[in-house]
């Protein structure tokens, strides 16, 4: 397989400037699969920023993708605000209990201090170490779980959904304190030499309506993006599931790049908003990347290229969402190799 001629930083800079590149940028979104690369258990990442960095840097070196994302699970900020997170020995952490079970405790919730609370200091440590080791050649990002999604972890998704109808002001309050945490954490991420990478799973049309997105998610998302822009960083925004009805709003919120989930249509996204934002996506993380064979990955990757390779503001070949931990290495290599073979300009 032809190896890359450019570093990821060189490639993204040239691509952004409209200069020649060796291949399109490619980002299979590797999370806890990194543990497999260095042969440690997923649970070992807890409280160990050095190990997260070691694994993420090793995964980047093994596969040669274009962005490193420091990410273990969606709950780090909610945990830092009091949510209970379960850490299985060798699987991705999950939310065991929201920060509050009684709404009377709402006033007790405080924004997290990223230098002190929960796992946030360790994640920042991981970012600093990764930048230290490979920051000269590849962008390192830190995952930020956006206000509306984080709010759902503070009170529980069912409760938040009902509050939207019964006590909208409480939802706004939860989003506001989540935003304060987000801004503090995003600031710390930028101070660490990284770029915040925004994820907003619950803002999906698979959960709430476009109108509810406008009312409860958009205002806070926009303020978060404004903050990141104010610190001179570009913003990639990932919303899971169906999103076609909110693409316009995501662009209006200021995102520079939309990460399109496999439940949404990449070709449609290109037509709808490709003239205003960069797109990335959307090979199916479980059906293709986890369960498929390399040839299926190759076909899915070519299909994404066909749909969006000429998107006016650019395209990054990516998985539709974070990869499952046990994704076979051969499939991740297959995605990169397909993009390398396609070259630039992309062969048909």
């Amino acid at each position: 397989m032809s190896r890359d001629q450019m570093t990821p930083l060189e490639r993204l800079a040239a691509y952004g400037a409209g200069a020649p590149i060796d291949r399109l940028p490619c980002v299979p979104i590797v999370g806890n699969t990194a543990a497999r690369v260095i042969g440690v258990k997923v649970g070992d990442f807890r409280g160990n920023g050095a190990l997260i960095a070691q694994a993420q840097v090793a995964a980047y070196r093994l596969f040669g993708y274009d962005i490193i994302r420091i990410f273990t699970d969606l709950y780090t900020q909610a945990e830092a605000m009091g949510a209970k997170v379960s850490y299985p020995e060798d699987e991705t952490a999950f939310l065991a209990a929201p920060a509050i079970t009684d709404l009377a405790e709402l006033d007790r919730l405080r924004p997290a201090d990223p230098q002190r609370d929960g796992q946030l200091p360790q994640h920042l440590e991981a970012m600093r170490r990764a930048v230290d080791q490979v920051g000269h050649e590849v962008a390192v990002t830190g995952a930020v779980t956006c206000p509306f999604t984080n709010a759902s972890f503070l009170v529980g998704a069912d409760k938040l959904a009902r509050l939207m109808m019964r006590s909208p002001e409480m939802v706004h309050h939860l989003c506001e304190i989540s935003l304060q945490t987000n801004i503090a954490y995003a600031g710390a991420i930028i101070d660490a030499g990284c770029t915040p990478s925004l994820t907003d799973a619950m803002s999906s049309m698979s959960v709430i309506s476009p109108r509810q997105f406008r009312e409860f998610s958009f205002p806070y998302l926009k303020r978060l993006i404004d903050y990141v822009h104010g610190r001179d960083r570009k913003v990639t925004l990932h919303i899971c599931g169906k999103t076609s009805g909110i693409w316009e709003a995501m662009v209006e919120a200021g995102a520079d790049c939309l990460s399109i989930d496999n439940d949404a249509d990449l070709g449609e996204a290109r037509i709808a908003v490709g003239d205003r934002v960069r797109l990335m996506g959307n090979v199916h993380p479980s059906e293709v990347m986890l369960q498929g064979i390399p040839d299926a990955v190759r076909r899915a990757t070519l299909s994404c290229l066909a749909q969006a390779k000429d998107s006016p503001k650019g395209f990054i070949v990516a998985s539709g969402c974070s990869l499952p931990t046990e994704t076979p290495f051969a499939n991740i290599h297959a995605m990169l190799d397909t993009v390398r073979e396609a070259g630039w300009p992309v062969k048909n």
């Binding site: 959904a161 939207m164 109808m165 709430i208 309506s209 509810q212 009805g245």
Partner: peptide, 14 residues
């Protein structure tokens, strides 16, 4: 038909 979403369905079920 995407007239209702999860919050509405939960309220209907209540």
């Amino acid at each position: 038909e995407e007239e209702y979403f999860i919050p509405e369905l939960l309220m209907c079920s209540d």
